[in-house]
Nucleic acid binder design. Structure first.
Length: 460
RNA sequence: UCCCCAGUAGCUCAGUUGGCAGAGCGAGUGGCUGUUAACCACUAAGUCCGCGGUUCAAGUCCGUGCUGGGGAGCCA
């Protein structure tokens, strides 16, 4: 007999004579002539209540089943005589697949996030983390749906890159050298002898590759892991994280902002509609304001504000900031939060930043001082999207590379796209973990990725 | 990398002026009950993060290291 997932069972319209469920015991409550077992199989937040009658041949063993044990239960789905649930399973046979000894680290009580991080291999068996990772999966699906509905193509950009810099931070080096015997030439490492014959790194962004495909297939996106070797110790940064990077040909900054806003709204709406049970857990136990925040993000029209006007608002604000605001400096976290949480009370898209604080590939505006960049800022998380219209004019792009000290030879292929049929195009990056933090209210990035990689932490 | 805070039972934490190591939850045992993270009683459980110092005496004070958390910078 095939097992039925608990999610399906609990949504049944009618009683079912014969069912088989398999899962892990969350708790056991004994009565005189029978026991209640709460079984969870990960298919949904809810457990199913199983009635184990003392008449079962292995009742002695059933009475010793502990939290964490795995069981297979055959029986009948019947309306519950108790008041807490619609259905329950009256067991005719309980096969104890594996007993969990009492050293099982998860107890029938709340644990701290810090403790659960130390048992990251077991935490998906808790309500909160089960819900978080189901939502992570649903959001992945929603992202692909969003793009496919809009005729975008999914591009797999390389994880290993030969570019010495993609303009987005410190990189992890990749080599097959024997560290005890690294070949040198003229006192320097001889990368000619390394696997690729030159320096290789893990990617920090798929953008430059994605641009090549946007300039071939039209509208494309990437969705994959990204690696930054920054020594960042915050609740919003990880060394390995997933990023979604759409890139659109024949699209200017305004079209780019339109897509960013539409996408964030779509994803918030999707989660509100499709993940009610799991979302409800976060709204009750993690962030009481979660539903308001999500509805605000799903429904409000995002403010679009040039960087200079943002600086004006901030300098004229009576609010006391720890750091001063002035034109030409990047905004601090506290400034972004002020704009989204206090001043506008909704998401804000800032655009046209000074070129001095943005990378070389962003398109220079006619004022010669700003670039066509845009950041989508949301309450509580801050920057969730960073993007721009790309510089499509070869001479200006080369000039910007010189200004920022990049070696143009390494980017010959990138520059080729501006030599042959160059057109305006735009794109952005959306941090997948930050999106999950936004929709769940979870405040630490380490708790929305299965096995987080942060400085000095690579267990599991 | 910088600033701040913390580390005590399996977990969450209390521990006063330096003076015998504590509670709740969990676990074990017994009881009770169509129960709902059940309830009642009893029992077991400790390298007080490591190292060094001050002191008659250190969980407590000082130094240092490690680990974790919050914030900043970098960004997604």
């Amino acid at each position: 007999m095939k097992r039925t997932k608990i999610f399906k069972l609990l949504n049944s319209e009618t009683p079912i004579k014969d069912v088989l469920i398999k899962g892990w015991v969350r708790t056991r409550r004994d009565s005189k002539t029978f026991s209640f077992l709460e079984i969870n199989d990960g298919s949904c937040l809810k457990n199913v209540q199983v009635i184990a009658d003392s008449g079962l041949d292995n009742y002695d063993a059933i009475n010793r089943i502990s939290t964490g044990s795995a069981v297979a239960v055959s029986g009948e789905l019947t309306p519950s005589k108790g008041s807490g649930q619609k259905w329950e399973v009256q067991a005719t046979d309980i096969d104890i697949l594996h007993m969990s000894p009492d050293s099982f680290p998860l107890q029938k009580k709340r644990h701290s996030d810090e403790y659960l991080r130390s048992i990251a291999h077991l935490r998906p068996r808790t309500n909160k983390y089960g819900a978080a990772f189901r939502i992570r999966s649903e959001l992945s699906y929603a992202i692909h749906t969003f793009f496919r509905d809009r005729d975008f193509r999914y591009i797999h950009t390389p994880i290993i890159t030969g570019s010495d810099c993609e303009g987005a931070g410190e990189m992890f080096r990749l080599t097959t050298f024997d560290f005890k015997n690294i070949p040198e030439i003229d006192g320097k490492t001889d990368f000619n002898q390394d696997f690729f014959g030159k320096e290789a790194n893990l990617t920090v962004s798929g953008q430059l590759s994605a641009e090549m495909f946007a300039l071939s297939l039209g509208d494309v996106y990437t969705f994959g892991p990204t690696f930054r070797a920054e020594n960042s110790n915050t609740s919003r940064h990880a060394a390995e994280f997933w990023m979604i990077e759409p890139e659109m040909a024949f699209c200017d900054l305004e079209g780019n902002m339109d897509l960013g806003e539409e996408m964030v709204k779509y994803l918030a709406t999707f989660i509100l509609d499709e993940c009610k049970d799991d979302l409800d857990l976060f709204a009750r136990f993690v962030d009481k304001q979660l539903m308001n925040t999500l509805e605000n993000i799903a429904e409000s029209t995002y403010v679009r504000l040039p960087y200079t006007e943002a600086v004006d608002i901030l300098t004229h604000s009576k609010f006391k900031f720890e750091y001063d605001v002035s034109y030409g400096k990047d905004l601090q976290s506290e400034h972004e939060r002020y704009l989204t949480e206090k001043h506008f009370k909704k998401p804000v898209i800032l655009y046209n930043y000074p070129k001095t604080i943005k990378p070389f590939y962003m398109r220079l505006n006619d004022d010669n001082k700003t670039v066509a960049a845009m950041d989508v800022l949301v309450p509580r998380i801050g920057e969730i999207i960073g993007g721009s219209q790309r510089e499509e004019r070869l001479d200006i792009l080369e000039h910007r590379m010189d200004e920022t000290g990049l070696n143009k030879e390494n980017y010959w292929w990138y520059l080729d796209s501006r030599r042959y049929g160059s057109v305006e195009h735009s794109g952005f990056g959306l941090g997948f973990e930050r999106l999950i933090m936004l929709v769940t209210g979870i405040s630490n990035i380490r708790d929305v990725i299965p096995f987080p990689r942060t400085p000095k932490n690579i267990d599991f």
